[in-house]
Design a protein around this nucleic acid. Structure first.
Length: 564
RNA sequence: UGGGGCGUCGUCAAGCGGUAAGACACAUGGUUUUGGUCCAUGCAUUCGGGGGUUCGAAUCCUCCCGCCCCAGCCA
């Protein structure tokens, strides 16, 4: 399980577990579960729950099950179960042979329902959906009892069996718990817990036409699996009395439901409904679009499982609604990649540089460090020649005071290569755009050090024009322009038109020729990049995972620059 | 107006009656062949507000204020 089971910061749930352990509750056992509904792809919010559930189990010598909450066949598909399995594994967690489905328990669930009917705790109701709503009352007014509430046990038993046998139309009858139509908690006003719905289930096919609902199926499934601590999000707090009611009435093993706040992240959305909308309406290329907060999107973007786990540890677990700063997620991936990513030089927006005093056909192989944070990563050789490319941004005709990079007459260092001085600027006559630079190099500075000790204020990355490989690079920014796009009604309105920028004429170091999808690199001075599956032989495609921290960009943005 | 929760630095979050951890962000210096990393320093006399209990309160009591969730045959 890699190191996914290591200690994480404490939280109120761990306190409860520790207290239970101390009191020998559940015979000192800890059993949790991660219970996704297979109706969409997992996102970073699920990662929080996954890390919590598997983490708590691992830390207290317990086990965590993976259970699909598949009680609504009209929304669920096996495509989603496959993706969920892949994503949880990728995050670094394992459930061994404990992968379950609520649908595994359909027969048991049915038998328990029969028992509730026999105990006069449930009844078949013929009210229409609309009528049930009207009978339910409002937040401030009590509901009215259904006229079918007093049916005999025998009639209920007969009707429920016939519901199962398919004798009635979809939606014509329901099985309801007989609780309290006047309860202040609306969930307790005789909730429906079985409905007739003829849709093919991804696992049970057409063998059922009645399906149990969440409140009933979830607590019973937890009980069957002997879950000790059933962790879920805050919106289910109101459902806990019902969770407890079913288990008490059935007199079966009774797990404890504990609720925690779901994760919100700035500049993105987390609800499955809204993520589905982005996919369906084509605002993104799919669930794994690198701009999506889905696990598959983050993976394609270049995030590591380790960085996501660290993120989940850092955000903590509590009950207060909160929105975590996206900057923390970015910090976590930089932290991880800084240690592990090989450094490489790539030029995104090439500007041609001719070293006028460098021999025409000479090629020099310069030694470059693969990762200054990891001596074991070794070194490599990078070709240098008369014609090079540097980043357009690294040259300015009339630089402001704090611009340290190349400018007319100025000397800078080309990383691992030589000091060069800009002597001429070639412009496009019609547009005035700088299209080429003429520079001279100082042969004495080979490797990047000056024997006479003179300093330069900047070091630029570069690539040899004759050796570079062409590549496509996709730059990403936040998907939304609003810090909390979920607050508005009109999601598309907040989509960032610059969330994706595709650069098709990038020049990358020749060593990158054999990079394969999923490989991650640091493009020096630019950021971390990951090879996209869209790559083809000879035509790599890179996704920018995240930029490096950039104090220069910050200065520019803050407008703190004065002209020289 | 009913029920259930939550309010500690810009954002997360410890704290559990003994006198406000940590992280991110931000700011300023230092090192540096990545304006990266790293290092150093600063950043809540105060815990939504008012009363009260106590030698002592973010922690206990009380009143008030604010925010979130609930009226699917979704989960």
């Amino acid at each position: 399980m890699s190191d996914a089971g290591s200690k994480s910061p404490s939280n109120f749930i761990k306190h409860i577990v520790e207290e239970d352990l101390k009191n020998k509750k559940n015979n000192g056992k800890v059993q949790t579960r991660f219970p996704p509904e297979p109706n969409g792809y997992l996102h970073i919010g699920h990662a929080k729950s996954i890390c919590l559930n598997f983490g708590v189990a691992a830390e207290y010598n317990g086990l965590c099950n993976l259970r699909f909450d598949d009680t609504n066949p009209s929304k669920e598909e096996s495509e989603y179960v496959h993706s969920i399995i892949e994503d949880v594994h990728w995050l670094g967690f394992d459930w061994a042979d404990r992968m379950f489905y609520a649908s595994d328990y359909f027969e048991q669930l049915y038998q328990y329902a029969v028992q509730l009917i026999k105990n006069n705790r449930a009844y078949v109701c013929d009210l229409t959906a609309d009528e049930i709503r009207k009978y339910r009352g409002t937040l401030t007014e009590p509901g009215k009892e259904s006229p079918f509430r007093t049916r005999s046990v025998e009639e209920n038993l007969d009707l429920f069996e016939r519901m199962r046998n398919g004798e009635f139309e979809d939606g014509s009858r329901t099985l309801r718990a007989k609780i309290d139509m006047a309860s202040g908690n609306i969930n307790m006003r005789d909730p429906v817990f079985y409905r007739i719905q003829r849709s093919t289930h991804h696992r049970t096919g057409d063998s059922w036409c009645i399906y149990p609902m969440y409140d009933y199926a979830h607590c019973v499934s937890d009980s069957i699996e002997k879950i000790t601590h059933s962790l879920c999000t805050l919106e289910f707090e109101d459902h806990r009395p019902l969770y407890d009611w079913f288990l008490d009435e059935l007199n079966v093993f009774h797990p404890q439901q504990i609720e925690f706040a779901r994760l919100n992240l700035t500049y993105t959305v987390m609800s499955k409904r809204k993520l589905l909308q982005l996919v369906k309406e084509g605002h993104v290329s799919g669930w794994d679009d690198p701009r999506m907060p889905t696990i598959s999107g983050l993976r394609r973007r270049g995030y590591t499982p380790e960085s996501i786990r660290n993120f989940c540890d850092r955000i903590g677990v509590a009950k207060a609604d909160s929105t975590v700063d996206m900057a923390l997620l970015e910090y976590c991936i930089r932290e991880d990649l800084n240690k592990s990513a090989l450094r490489v030089m790539s030029v995104l927006n090439p500007l041609k540089v001719v070293i006028t005093n460098y021999p025409e056909d000479e090629v020099d192989e310069l030694e470059a460090v693969n990762n200054p944070e990891d001596p074991d990563a070794g070194t490599r050789r990078v070709p240098f020649s008369k014609v090079l490319y540097i980043e357009k941004e690294d040259f300015m005709q009339d630089p402001p005071k704090k611009f340290f990079r190349l400018a007319p007459g100025r000397e800078v260092r080309l990383r691992y290569a030589y000091f060069i001085t800009c002597t001429d600027v070639i412009k496009d006559e019609s547009t005035g755009e700088v299209v080429e630079l003429h520079c001279t190099y100082d042969p004495e500075t080979r490797g990047g050090d000056s024997p006479d000790g003179r300093k330069v204020k900047a070091t630029l990355h570069w690539v040899s024009a004759g050796h570079a490989i062409d590549a496509e690079v996709r730059l990403y920014n936040s998907l939304f322009t609003a810090e909390n796009p979920e607050s508005g009604d009109d999601l598309p309105r907040y989509i960032n038109p610059e969330s994706q920028q595709v650069l098709t004429s990038c020049k990358i170091e020749p060593g990158l020729a054999d990079a394969s999808p999923g490989n991650r690199f640091q493009f020096e001075r630019l950021g971390y990049f990951c090879v996209d599956p869209d790559s083809s032989p000879g035509r790599p495609v890179f996704n920018r995972t995240v930029t490096l921290r950039d104090t220069w960009a910050k200065l520019q943005k803050a407008g703190k620059l004065t002209q020289l």
